[in-house]
């Protein structure tokens, strides 16, 4: 991870914030926007429960990266989204690690965050927008591995978007009363609250990075009980 930026956002300005942070992160990584070959967004909630196109394509267009027709030697950039509840940041990181080495451009944008879907949705989350520049090599902190653990997974703890006939508007509903795990921080280990959204998980983790000089394990537990642990090396 060559550079990163994060900020708390309002209800629904994720795209604008992501583009702004991406420009800063790209500048701080001492690369140019056209060096980016992959954009992966991770999150759960989109405005009006949008399903297509991928949110990453809106970031891509907003940054105007290789927005030209294909020629025989034109550079390429590819964008898509991944999601798995609050574990989405780790899934997005893994997907970048999977695909970036085989692409022509060796830098990627990791983008994390959620929008409040409609004004009718109860929203007591703190929304954060996080953008990081990832390279296949460099001086930054190094992602060593991402492990997953399904042993506490409860398939009944789901979240769905639905139309509320009484108020004639879209809302979301969380099924099951999951026990929220509290934040836990030790020397080389950090785990957030399982009620946080993806952006907050990544934002709080990044606050722990300064001052680390060995390894740091970052665990995310989703409200469904699924968890992922990313191991970073300094």
């Amino acid at each position: 991870m060559l550079s990163w930026e994060s900020t708390k956002i309002g209800y629904n300005n994720l795209l604008k914030s992501t583009i702004k942070l991406a420009k800063k992160a790209i500048h701080n990584a001492k690369i140019k926007p056209e060096d980016i070959g992959l954009i992966v967004h991770g999150g759960v909630y989109r405005e009006h429960f949008r399903t297509e196109p991928a949110f990453a394509t809106h970031i891509h267009g907003g940054l105007n990266i290789h927005c030209t027709n294909i020629s025989f030697d034109s550079p390429t950039c590819f964008s898509f989204d991944v999601t798995d509840g609050s574990c989405s940041p780790h899934i997005a990181l893994q997907s970048i690690a999977d695909l970036l080495p085989s692409l022509r451009n060796k830098f990627a944008l990791l983008c994390i965050g959620d929008d409040r879907p409609t004004k009718h949705c109860d929203w007591d989350y703190e929304s954060y927008c996080v953008v990081a520049v990832i390279g296949v090599s460099g001086e930054g902190i190094k992602l060593v591995s991402v492990d997953y653990d399904n042993s506490n997974f409860n398939p009944n703890f789901t979240t769905i978007g639905y139309f509320d006939e009484d108020i004639k508007a879209n809302k979301f509903l969380q099924a099951g009363n999951s026990k929220y795990l509290q934040q836990e921080s030790k020397n080389n280990y950090f785990s957030g609250n399982s009620n946080w959204l993806s952006g907050k998980h990544m934002h709080e983790f990044l606050q722990k990075v300064d001052g680390q000089n060995d390894t740091l394990e970052h665990c995310i537990v989703d409200r469904s009980g699924k968890s992922t642990t990313a191991k970073w090396e300094f």
Partner: peptide, 18 residues
């Protein structure tokens, strides 16, 4: 090689009816 021609990212939008 995978391409995203993001200049066309608003040509097809799928979402919930309002």
């Amino acid at each position: 090689e995978p391409f995203t021609l993001a200049q066309h990212n608003l040509l097809c939008i799928g979402q919930a009816c309002k």
